[in-house]
Amino acid sequence: MIVKVDAARCQGHGRCAVEAARVYTLDAEGHCAVNGRTIPPELEEEARIGVEVCPERAIALEP
């Protein structure tokens, strides 16, 4: 599973990193910094939580 972050949508709320810290990290400006990251199976559930909590719907997961 791969994380896709739409940089145009991400507003730097940082919710993803707070709720699913093992998957999401933020860059110096507070924007989501894991675009393209491959997620190991044991973290897939947390990756989904990031998608569900992001207020801007900036995160998508690809198989």
């Binding site: 939580i49 569900e52 909590v53």
Partner: peptide, 20 residues
């Protein structure tokens, strides 16, 4: 697709790990 059982958005269930 994951279900919407635990809600979504800022109030998404905090207890889902425990429930699971």
């Amino acid at each position: 697709n994951p279900p919407i059982t635990f809600g979504a958005g800022v109030h998404r269930c905090l207890g889902s790990h425990l429930a699971r």
